[in-house]
Design a protein around this nucleic acid. Structure first.
Lengths: 130, 130
DNA sequence: TGCTTATACTCTCCAAAAGAAAGTAGGCAC
DNA sequence: GTGCCTACTTTCTTTTGGAGAGTATAAGCA
């Protein structure tokens, strides 16, 4: 795995602007509401079929689930297994890359759980002021 | 700060479904492209004015910058200081809550940097196959 | 006097994206 | 034949996002 080469992340290292651009793009791509929620469910439940994911992710439409899964598959985050049977059976599971992204997002889920009340309080205060 | 009470995060604990819903909503809120990029710049550069942020965040429109900052302010992530002068001067800086979210997202930025190449390779492979 | 500049928005219009709901394929049970 | 099953796909409507012009205000300048 030569993708890190000799940079084990130094936060003060000067970053190649091209890399920064690409990272920003990638952040924009994975920092998507549906991507995150699908990632969460696949991480929690393991291999899932389409319909099960649609039930697990609250409020997602079939169209967006299809689009999100395709994009995640293209980015190498999920693996799609088609069983050629009738009725169709398609299974989705996280790749190693997807799992590593899930772990990277762990901190955000913890944050959301830990600071939910603070955010709610801030919203109430803001709406009262405004 | 009684928001964690007696639960220092146990990943296997049964989660109150209402909490899960709220966490999902909150994730959907902060897992937004512009929120993340603004957070990143404010974390890196500290206090910033509107126009500077517009320059720092690549490709954001004024409308989206205003909306994003308002939403972040409402959620208690940024503090907005208005200096009543002409021409106007408004400064934005992360609150402690915003900083903690920035730290939580650190793992994602590291992930993006570390796995950029893998994602690019996966995309190329996907596009070639398909 | 009137023109320019500066800043942080705000508004309007149009294109793009998302959501809702119906349609499709194709074998199987009835 | 009718309907069911699943994983989409298509169509239509609503919402959102982006581009660009407009607004308010006072100081600086000719």
């Amino acid at each position: 795995m030569p993708q890190s080469e000799k940079r084990p992340y130094d936060p003060d290292a000067p970053v190649d602007p091209r890399v920064e651009t690409l990272v920003n793009e990638l952040i924009g791509r994975v920092a998507d509401k549906w991507t995150l929620l699908v990632l969460e469910e696949l991480e929690e439940h393991g291999t899932c079929r389409f319909t099960r994911l649609a039930q697990l992710v609250p409020g997602i439409s079939q169209k967006m689930l299809t689009q999100t899964l395709r994009a995640m598959e293209r980015d190498g985050l999920v693996h799609r297994t088609v069983h050629p049977v009738i009725p169709p059976k398609v299974e989705y599971r996280l790749t190693e890359l997807g799992q590593s992204l899930g772990e990277a997002f762990c901190g955000v889920w913890h944050w959301a759980e830990a600071h939910l009340r603070e955010v709610e309080a801030a919203r109430t205060a803001f709406d009262t002021r405004g």
